[in-house]
Deep mutational scan, measured.
Amino acid sequence: KELVLALYDYQEKSPREVTMKKGDILTLLNSTNKDWWKVEVADRQGFVPAAYVKKL
C-alpha cells in the first residue's frame, strides 16, 4: 500500500474529510482526483487536499 506524508495540519470541514497533523503518515487509498486524495488515518477514511500531502 502507498503512504503519504502530511505536509501541513488540516482540519476537516465536512464528514467526508479527515483531520491530519503535519508529519502524520497516512495510507493513500485513491489519488485519481488531482485536488482531493482519499486517505486512511486512525481507522477513518476520508479526503484531504492533495497539495497538503506528499507521496513517500
Rank of each mutant, 00 (worst) to 15 (best):
Y8W: 11
Y52Q: 05
T19P: 07
F47K: 03
W36N: 02
L7S: 03
R16K: 12
E12L: 08
K54D: 07
F47E: 04
K1F: 14
E2T: 14
I25S: 03
I25Q: 05
D35H: 15
L29Y: 04
Y10G: 00
K34A: 13
K21H: 10
K1P: 13
K38E: 14
E17F: 07
Y10A: 00
G23L: 03
Y8F: 13
K13N: 10
S14M: 08
T32D: 15
A50P: 04
I25L: 09
L26D: 00
V18R: 02
Y8L: 10
L56N: 03
P15N: 11
L3A: 06
L28Q: 00
A50I: 04
V41G: 14
M20E: 00
P15G: 09
V4R: 02
Y52F: 13
S14P: 04
L5I: 15
E40S: 10
L28W: 02
Y10D: 01
M20K: 00
V41T: 15
V39E: 00
W37C: 04
K34Q: 12
V4I: 08
Q11C: 11
R44Q: 07
Y52C: 11
Y52I: 07
K34T: 11
M20L: 09
G46H: 02
V41Y: 12
T32E: 14
L26G: 09
Q45R: 12
V18I: 14
N30L: 10
V48C: 03
Y52H: 06
K21E: 06
E17V: 05
T19Y: 04
L7Y: 04
V4D: 00
Y8Q: 14
V18N: 03
V48L: 02
A42M: 14
K22Y: 05
K21D: 04
T19V: 03
W37Q: 00
Y52N: 05
E17C: 07
Q11I: 15
Y8M: 13
D9G: 06
T19R: 06
L28R: 00
N30D: 15
A51S: 14
E2M: 12
F47V: 08
R44E: 05
D24Q: 14
E40Q: 15
R16M: 13
N33M: 09
A6S: 05
L7E: 04
W36Y: 07
L3Q: 10
R16V: 11
D9N: 09
K34N: 12
E2S: 12
F47N: 04
D35N: 14
D24K: 03
R44V: 07
A42Q: 13
D35L: 14
T19K: 04
E17D: 06
T27N: 09
D43T: 10
T19F: 05
A50D: 01
G46M: 06
E2G: 10
P15A: 13
E2F: 12
F47C: 11
V4P: 00
E12I: 07
K55H: 09
K22E: 07
R16G: 14
R16D: 13
K22G: 05
L29H: 06
K34R: 12
E17G: 12
V48R: 00
T27V: 15
E12W: 06
S14L: 09
L3C: 11
Y8H: 12
G23I: 01
E17Q: 11
V41Q: 14
V41H: 15
T27D: 06
L28G: 00
Y10N: 00
A51W: 09
N33G: 11
G23W: 07
A51P: 09
R44K: 11
N30G: 07
K54M: 15
K22F: 06
P49Q: 02
K54T: 14
D43R: 08
Y8R: 15
K54I: 15
D43E: 13
L7R: 05
R44A: 06
R16P: 05
E2I: 14
P15Y: 09
M20C: 06
V4T: 02
D24L: 06
K38L: 15
K1R: 14
V18Q: 02
V39G: 01
K54Q: 14
W36Q: 03
L3I: 08
Q45T: 14
T27E: 12
V53Q: 01
Q11H: 13
W37R: 02
W37V: 07
G46W: 04
T32C: 13
E17A: 07
Y8D: 07
L26A: 08
T27Q: 11
K1Y: 14
T19D: 04
Y52T: 07
G46N: 01
A51F: 09
K13T: 12
V4N: 01
Y10T: 00
R44C: 05
P15V: 10
K13S: 10
T27K: 12
E40C: 12
E2Y: 12
W37F: 07
K21Y: 12
V41A: 15
K54N: 06
M20V: 09
Y52W: 07
Q11A: 13
F47M: 09
Q11V: 14
D9I: 03
W37D: 01
W36R: 03
K22S: 08
E12F: 06
P49V: 02
E40T: 08
K38Y: 15
L56H: 06
N30S: 13
D9V: 03
K38W: 14
L26W: 04
A51V: 10
Q45H: 10
V41M: 14
E40K: 10
E12S: 15
K13Y: 05
E12Y: 05
L3H: 09
D24N: 07
K55C: 10
T32L: 10
Q11F: 15
L5P: 01
F47Y: 15
W36F: 07
L5Q: 10
A42S: 13
D9F: 04
M20P: 00
K21P: 00
T19M: 04
A6E: 01
Y8T: 08
V39P: 00
P49M: 03
R16I: 12
N30E: 15
Y10W: 11
K1D: 08
L5M: 14
F47T: 03
T32H: 11
K22R: 11
V48A: 03
F47I: 07
V39L: 05
K54R: 14
V18A: 06
L28K: 01
P49C: 05
N30T: 08
E2W: 13
R16C: 15
V48T: 01
D24G: 04
A50R: 14
D43W: 08
K55M: 11
K22P: 03
L3R: 11
Y52D: 03
L5F: 09
V18S: 02
D35K: 14
N30M: 09
L28D: 00
N33I: 06
K34E: 10
L26F: 06
W37K: 01
A42R: 14
Y10Q: 00
E40I: 10
V53A: 04
L56I: 14
L3N: 06
R44F: 05
V53C: 15
Y52P: 01
N30C: 12
D43G: 15
V18F: 11
S31M: 09
E12G: 15
D43H: 12
T32A: 13
E2D: 12
L26Y: 11
V53G: 01
S31R: 08
P15W: 09
Q45M: 12
I25D: 00
L29A: 03
L56V: 11
V4A: 11
T32V: 10
K38M: 15
A51N: 13
K38G: 05
L29T: 05
L28S: 01
E2R: 12
L5A: 06
L29V: 13
K22W: 03
L29E: 02
K13R: 14
K38T: 08
A51K: 15
W36E: 04
V4E: 00
N30K: 07
Q45S: 13
L29P: 00
S31Q: 10
P49S: 02
E2N: 13
Q45E: 11
Y8N: 08
K38N: 07
K54G: 08
D43S: 12
L26N: 00
L28E: 00
S31I: 06
E17S: 06
Y8P: 01
L28I: 05
M20G: 01
W36I: 03
L7K: 05
W36H: 03
L29M: 08
R44P: 00
E17M: 06
S14K: 08
A6M: 02
Q45I: 13
K21V: 10
